[in-house]
Write a protein that binds this DNA or RNA. Structure first.
Length: 212
DNA sequence: GTCGAGATTATCT
DNA sequence: GATAATCTCGACC
């Protein structure tokens, strides 16, 4: 049958739209994914795995279905699920979701968010809402007891509902060549209020050396 | 309502 | 030592 692991082992650009609408449960909170981004390996300049495996990215080269969490900007954690054939180093970044279970817990973790649609609107916010940390890297989303991933509807013929129209755009926040329109690998449910607004890569200040 | 700049630390060269 | 797959807050219209 359609093993979920088999679905995730397909190429990243096929898996990404299939994950939209899927339910991810972690640490007592469940979200419905509304926005994801695809990352590949050696042929994707925007990927952490572009330069080959390192201690941090090793899990991306392994079996599909495991969690890849990383720390960025000094204060944020982002979560991916490893996808693609073994050794392809592909992953899907969870960018946003709608909290559909455990909202009270999510609110207690995200005190700064005022509206429920902001609880998991953004990759770092989603991690906080779900209680995901660096220590969870490598966890199996399919077999673990703390995590659970479920596709919304695995029927290949029944296309997605009209309300869930899938759109694409360039990836958000990716600096360098990987952030251009050549890689329109961001997938989201158009019109969903939890999708984060698109923002081009932040052109970080080119080192304006403060005179002391 | 929109826009712009700063914060802060794991990871890699 | 430099960089980064971001978030938040303050200024201004």
């Amino acid at each position: 049958m359609t093993g979920l692991r088999d679905v995730l082992s397909r190429p990243a650009l096929e898996v990404a739209p299939a994950l939209l609408g899927a339910q991810l449960t972690a640490n007592g909170v469940t979200v419905r994914l509304t926005e994801v981004e695809a990352y590949r390996g050696a042929d994707d300049p925007g990927s952490h795995a572009f330069r080959g495996p390192t201690a941090r990215t090793r899990v991306m080269f392994g079996e599909a279905g495991h969690l890849y969490a990383y720390f960025t900007y000094g204060m944020h954690t982002c979560a991916n699920v490893v996808v693609g054939p073994d050794g392809e180093a592909s992953a899907i970044l969870f960018r946003a979701g709608e909290v559909i279970g455990g909202a009270d817990v999510a609110r207690s973790r995200r005190l700064t968010s005022k509206r429920d649609t902001d609880l998991a609107s953004g990759p770092a916010r989603l991690c906080v809402a779900l209680g995901i940390t660096l220590a969870d890297t490598g966890a199996d989303l399919l077999g673990g007891s703390h995590f659970s991933l479920r596709l919304a509807d695995a029927s290949p013929d029944a296309s997605r509902p009209d309300a869930a129209r899938i759109s694409t755009s360039p990836r958000t926040g990716v600096a360098g060549p990987g952030g251009t329109a050549e890689f329109p690998w961001r997938f989201y449910l158009e019109g969903d209020p939890t999708v984060s607004p698109y923002r081009p890569a932040a052109p970080r200040r080119p080192a304006a050396a403060p005179p002391r």
